[in-house]
Simulated scan of single mutants.
Amino acid sequence: MPDGQHTIIDVHVLLVRSDELLLIRRRGDYGGGMWHLPSGKLDVGESLPTAAAREAAEEVGVLVDPADLRHVHTVHVANSGPVPRLGVFFEARQWSGEPHNREPDKCSAVEWFPLNNLPDDVIPYPLAGIRAYRNGDSFGLLGWADQPRPVLA
């Protein structure tokens, strides 16, 4: 890990309507052409729910009251860049506005998908949080060498 750098904290927003989830198609070096959730880094002095609401507004133009966000999963991620990341996932089931692409330089599409029929090309990091959300798991690890292996029946 580079000197002086610690774990990056990311927030991810699962905008859910009925049984559908909103995904955005990324542009650029990280995950270009693949699907992701509205997300971003926690800013200094910002609470996690406030950051998640801000990211939803910045990326897809919806206004979410931070009090309406429900924490659904946290994942500690290794090998997703030069330093580890802590991804905090929030579910939003109410918001104001219709989701649309507010960052066309970073995103090429905004689409709804059935929660049980997601596209094959979702970036593994957000996909881990989405799967955990569907399974009701509150915490997970991704990419760690000492990651516990699941017990197979």
Results as ranks from 00 to 15, higher is better:
H12Y: 15
V13L: 09
V13W: 05
L14S: 05
L15F: 11
L15D: 12
V16H: 10
R17L: 07
D19F: 10
D19P: 08
E20T: 14
L23Y: 12
R25C: 14
R26D: 12
R26P: 11
R26A: 13
G28N: 12
D29R: 14
D29W: 15
D29A: 15
D29P: 09
Y30Q: 02
G31A: 12
G31L: 11
G31H: 11
G32I: 05
G33K: 10
G33H: 11
H36A: 11
L37E: 03
S39M: 12
S39P: 00
G40H: 06
K41C: 06
L42M: 11
D43W: 02
D43K: 03
E46L: 01
S47A: 01
A52V: 03
R54G: 01
R54Q: 03
R54K: 02
A56D: 08
A56E: 08
A57T: 10
E59L: 11
E59K: 15
E59D: 12
V60M: 08
V60C: 11
G61M: 02
G61K: 04
G61Q: 06
G61V: 02
V62I: 14
L63R: 13
V64K: 03
V64Q: 04
D65F: 06
D65A: 11
D65C: 06
P66W: 01
A67H: 06
A67W: 02
A67G: 03
D68L: 02
D68T: 13
L69D: 02
L69N: 03
H71L: 13
V72Y: 10
V72A: 11
H73L: 01
H73T: 05
T74D: 10
T74Q: 12
H76M: 09
V77P: 00
A78P: 04
A78Y: 12
A78E: 14
S80A: 15
G81V: 10
P82Q: 04
P82V: 09
P82G: 04
V83P: 09
V83N: 12
R85V: 04
R85Y: 10
R85C: 00
L86N: 09
G87C: 13
V88I: 14
F90N: 03
E91K: 08
A92R: 04
R93M: 00
Q94R: 15
W95E: 09
W95F: 11
S96E: 13
S96Q: 13
G97L: 10
E98G: 00
E98M: 00
E98S: 04
P99T: 05
N101Q: 05
R102V: 00
R102Q: 08
R102G: 02
E103F: 00
K106G: 00
C107S: 10
C107T: 15
S108P: 01
S108H: 05
A109W: 03
A109L: 08
A109Q: 07
E111H: 05
F113G: 04
N116P: 00
N116Q: 10
L118C: 05
L118W: 05
D121P: 05
V122H: 08
I123F: 07
P124E: 09
P124Q: 03
Y125C: 03
L127W: 13
A128N: 08
G129Y: 07
I130A: 01
R131K: 12
R131Q: 14
A132G: 14
A132H: 13
Y133T: 03
Y133W: 13
R134M: 15
R134C: 14
N135R: 15
N135W: 11
N135D: 15
G136R: 03
G136Y: 05
S138T: 15
F139L: 13
F139Q: 15
F139S: 14
